[in-house]
Computed example of a mutant assay.
Amino acid sequence: MNVVILVGALLVLLFSAGWFISGASVLAEKMGIPPLLIGMIIIGFGTSSPELLVSVQAAMDNNAALAIGNAVGSNITNITLILGLTAVLAPIAVQSNIVRRELPFLLVATTVLFALGWDGLLSRVDAVILLSLFAVILGWAMVLARQTPDDALADDVTKELNEVTMSSKKAAVLVAVGLVLLTLSSRWLVSSAVQLATALGVSELMIGLTIVALGTSSPELAASVIAARKGEHDLALGNVLGSNLFNTLGAIGAAGLTRPLPVTETLVFRDMPVLLLVTLLLFPAAVGWRGPGSINRWEGALLLTGFAGYTGYLIFSNLS
């Protein structure tokens, strides 16, 4: 029954996140918000709404390992599985200067999370630091959206919005319904994941890093693969970078503000360094030292291999 509830919650999470993002994007466009800002905030951060709600719900239920593991595991999944699979299906050419500028911010955010968790506790003060950094990045995004309205990412978003015909009323309904279902499904997901971990005799961290992280990353997977297949490469990569920024600073920050979160040695010495490493691996591919950045099929295959190796290690180390 827990497996059925878990799978059902993940499916509801996927569809409700899609409705929420679609409705919010249309409403933002009708309100005159620049396409670049829609791409960076509404779409990039909107795909992380499942991680936010699941991590906050887990923190409220005093399941700290699940709260942090979900966000960290989702970030690793976003880079290795989602970008890897996307690049294998359609190599990602990076034209957007904004997307390239997001990478250093993501590296700084990941490093700050690593440093704050080093003492074994994410306190409320630490959470305020994460959320403050998130606010700074939001402000930076708003300034850039006004200074560089013709960025390649804005072109991708405009192309995507032009394909959608939706009234404001329908968009508002999708936002409302999506938010309600996201909230309910996150509760079902956390409850079933904790009970499943107990029944299987594995840690909540293991469940958070694998099953829950993969499920909450499904909106990013759908958005990036579809964008890349349409030739909207900057939107595909920008979606993942924006999502990871939100997970690191927004989701974990909000969860830590709800309740101080103990950080296990396993997270500090295994999972966070893996996240830092795969984030660093994006630089030579996405930034492009000798020309426009790109993630080709071979690099995508390497990322997929990293996902398989990391996930395999988690599974076998818990079974042994």
Rank of each mutant, 00 (worst) to 15 (best):
V88A: 06
A90G: 00
P91Y: 04
I92F: 05
A93N: 13
V94I: 15
Q95T: 07
Q95W: 10
S96Q: 08
N97T: 09
N97H: 15
N97G: 15
N97L: 12
R100V: 01
E102P: 04
E102R: 09
F105Q: 15
L106I: 05
L107Y: 03
L107P: 08
L107E: 02
V108P: 01
V108K: 02
A109S: 06
T110F: 01
T110S: 11
T110D: 02
T111C: 01
T111E: 01
T111S: 10
V112P: 02
V112Q: 08
V112M: 09
L113R: 04
L113I: 01
L113G: 00
F114V: 10
F114E: 03
F114H: 08
A115I: 15
A115D: 15
L116C: 00
W118S: 15
W118N: 14
D119C: 06
D119Y: 02
G120S: 04
L122C: 07
S123I: 07
S123W: 05
V125T: 13
D126T: 06
V128T: 08
I129R: 11
L131Y: 02
S132W: 05
F134H: 12
F134I: 09
A135D: 06
V136G: 09
I137T: 12
G139N: 04
W140E: 14
W140T: 03
W140F: 15
A141I: 05
M142Y: 14
V143D: 14
V143C: 12
L144G: 08
R146T: 15
R146S: 14
R146C: 12
T148R: 11
D150L: 10
D151W: 02
A152F: 10
L153F: 09
L153Q: 00
L153N: 00
L153A: 07
A154S: 02
D155I: 09
D156Y: 03
V157A: 13
T158D: 14
T158M: 09
E160Q: 04
L161M: 08
E163Y: 12
E163F: 04
V164I: 14
V164W: 07
V164L: 11
T165R: 13
M166K: 00
M166C: 01
M166I: 07
S167K: 03
S167H: 11
S168W: 13
S168Q: 09
K169C: 04
K170M: 11
K170E: 09
A172S: 06
A172G: 01
V173F: 04
V173R: 08
V173W: 12
V175T: 06
V175L: 12
V175C: 06
V175H: 03
A176G: 09
A176W: 11
V177C: 02
V177N: 04
V177F: 07
L179I: 06
L179H: 04
V180I: 12
